[in-house]
C-alpha cells in the first residue's frame, strides 16, 4: 500500500502501540512528538493521514488542526484526532475546526483501525 501516516503524539507507549497497529496494516509510519513544529512536519511530509493527539507540548491539537485546514492543500487531508481529556466541549471544538474523525482515549484497537480505514476510503 505504501501509504504514509504521520502520528503526532507525545506519549511513548501510545506511539509504540499505534506504530505497531498501523505498520501491521501496511502503513508507512512517521512519528512526531512536538506540537509547535507539527504543522511544518505535515507540510514537509505531506502524509496521506494524520493521527493527531489533543494535548501536545508547544501547541495543542486544535490549533494544529485549524492551521492545517486554513491551508487549501490540507483542507481535505484525513485527520484523526485522539484525546484523553474526554470532555464534550473538545469534540465540538474539533469538529468546528474541521476534524475528520474524533476519538476519545482509551480506544479499542479495532475501533481505531476501522476509523483509519474509513478515512482513507473516504479520501479516495
Amino acid at each position: 500500500m505504501g501509504k504514509h501516516v504521520l502520528l503526532v503524539e507525545d506519549e511513548i507507549n501510545i506511539i509504540e502501540a499505534m506504530q505497531f497497529l498501523l505498520s501491521r496494516e501496511g502503513w508507512d509510519v512517521d512519528t512526531h512528538s512536538d506540537g509547535a513544529t507539527a504543522v511544518d512536519k505535515v507540510r514537509a511530509m505531506k502524509p496521506d493521514l494524520v493521527v493527531l493527539d489533543y494535548m501536545l507540548p508547544g501547541k495543542n491539537g486544535i490549533d494544529i488542526l485549524s492551521e492545517l485546514r486554513a491551508d487549501p492543500e490540507f483542507a481535505r487531508l484525513p485527520i484523526l484526532m485522539l484525546t484523553a481529556r474526554g470532555q464534550g466541549r473538545d469534540r465540538e471544538q474539533a469538529e468546528k475546526a474541521g476534524v475528520s474523525r474524533f476519538m476519545t482515549k482509551p480506544f479499542s484497537n479495532t475501533e481505531v483501525m476501522t476509523a483509519v480505514r474509513d478515512l482513507v476510503q473516504l479520501a479516495q
Binding site: E11, A17, L21, A84, R85, G86, Q87, K105, P106, S108
Partner: peptide, 28 residues
C-alpha cells in the same frame, strides 16, 4: 476546575490507553 478535570482525565486515560491497546495486542 475544567482544566483540572481535563488534566486528571488525561493523566488517567493516557496510561489506560496504553494498557488497553497493548492488552488487546497481546490478546489478538
Amino acid at each position: 476546575k475544567d482544566a483540572f478535570l481535563g488534566q486528571i482525565s488525561h493523566e488517567l486515560r493516557t496510561p489506560m490507553t496504553s494498557i488497553r491497546s497493548f492488552s488487546e495486542i497481546l490478546r489478538d
